[in-house]
């Protein structure tokens, strides 16, 4: 087993081998889902009694891509992830994971998945390496190679020096890295990350993004959920925006922005309570306008020009900032609401 000792979230031997193993199986028929995709969903529904959490969604995840579910809390992302994780039965519709039906082949599907849940389920009483070891055993990995794999994974997430520490002694970021290491212990063909950076400080988030990005570069197929637009833009090749159990838009981050927003946004801040009055005076300067409680957003191809025109009209702004459009703007346009409440 090759051991790369570079610092950082290194791409070690087996992690980079994972996609190659998947490729080797291309012609075995196992991955032969209807469209040859890793995940194939049509008319996917999930209900809890009278409550419908997922209201009939269609999507495909292709091999080697990072696919994102973006949406506010309660949009149905986690319910979808639990169905994809072959844990939660589909209420109606079609779902094929790696060409298999989770209703009949849940265990076989899970053998090829790596799942990093939103809420840590590490064993607080076991130490860091024991957590990885016992988990690897659930996948039937033999003990001797598993010990090497555990050491390799600890190196990958930079926790080698914490190998003997109790999980309860780790920081939030370290626990999340350990959860990700655990989800990679079986060299999964598909990695599911449910809100991987929620609750982490910016430094820990960037460390995780770097790691996920390296996994993606190594060819691992990743499905993640997030309610951070910057996270989705950084990591996802393609994504779907969910709201109220439905997919409201899908595409690459760039396509979504191009299709649902303008190139730039001018953010104007006026005195409290005056946003609407000033908005009426500048509405004609942009293709589209959004009035938020604390600011007015002008959607335009040239933000600087729009701000100059506002000032030329003698309208004083408290602050005026020009930025590029983001997925937040797409979401705001599609749903009329901010992503993070």
């Amino acid at each position: 087993m090759s051991r790369n000792r570079q610092t950082g979230w290194l791409v070690s031997g087996n992690v980079s081998d994972a996609p190659r193993e998947a490729t080797d199986q291309d012609n075995s028929g196992e991955l032969g889902s209807p469209e040859g995709s890793m995940v194939h969903a049509r008319g996917l529904h999930k209900s809890f009694g009278d409550f419908e959490a997922v209201k009939g969604i269609d999507f495909d995840v292709r091999r080697g891509e990072c696919f994102g579910f973006l949406g506010p809390n309660g949009a149905g992302k986690s319910s979808t992830m639990r169905m994809i994780g072959a844990i939660s039965p589909v209420s109606s519709g079609t779902l094929r994971m790696l060409g298999m039906d989770p209703a009949t082949h849940g265990s076989q599907i899970r053998a090829k998945l790596g799942v990093c849940p939103q809420e840590d389920s590490l064993d607080a009483e076991l130490n860091v390496s024991e957590n990885l070891f016992v988990y690897g055993r659930y996948f039937g990995l033999p003990r001797a190679p598993l010990r090497l794999k555990v050491a390799e994974m600890l190196e990958f997430v930079q926790l080698t020096d914490k190998a003997k520490s109790k999980v309860s002694e780790l920081s939030g970021g370290m626990k999340r890295r350990l959860s990700i290491a655990r989800s990679l212990i079986n060299d999964p063909q598909l990695l599911l990350l449910d809100e991987p950076t929620t609750g982490l400080d910016p430094q820990a988030r960037h460390l995780l993004w770097d790691g996920i990005y390296r996994l993606k570069q190594a060819g691992v197929t990743v499905v993640l959920t997030t309610h951070y637009m910057d996270e989705a833009e950084q990591l996802c090749d393609r994504l779907v925006v969910m709201d109220d159990g439905r997919i409201v838009a899908q595409g690459t981050p760039r396509d979504l922005i191009a299709h649902h927003s303008t190139r730039e946004v001018a953010e104007l801040r006026f005195p409290v309570g005056d946003q609407q009055r000033y908005a009426d005076q500048v509405a004609d300067l942009a293709e589209r306008i959004e009035v938020l409680p604390d600011r007015v957003l002008l959607y335009t191809a040239d933000g600087d020009h729009a701000v100059a025109q506002v000032h030329a009209r003698g309208i004083a702004t408290e602050t005026a900032m020009v930025r590029r459009s983001s997925l937040e703007d797409v979401f705001l346009h599609l749903t009329g609401r901010s992503l993070v409440d």
């Binding site: 844990i87 849940g106 899970r110 799942v115 389920s121 590490l122 064993d123 988990y135 659930y138 996948f139």
Partner: peptide, 14 residues
């Protein structure tokens, strides 16, 4: 508290 069963559930264990 430990969520042991949830961790196990994500593996091939039924």
């Amino acid at each position: 508290w430990d969520r042991t069963y949830y961790a196990m559930q994500a593996s091939p264990l039924r």
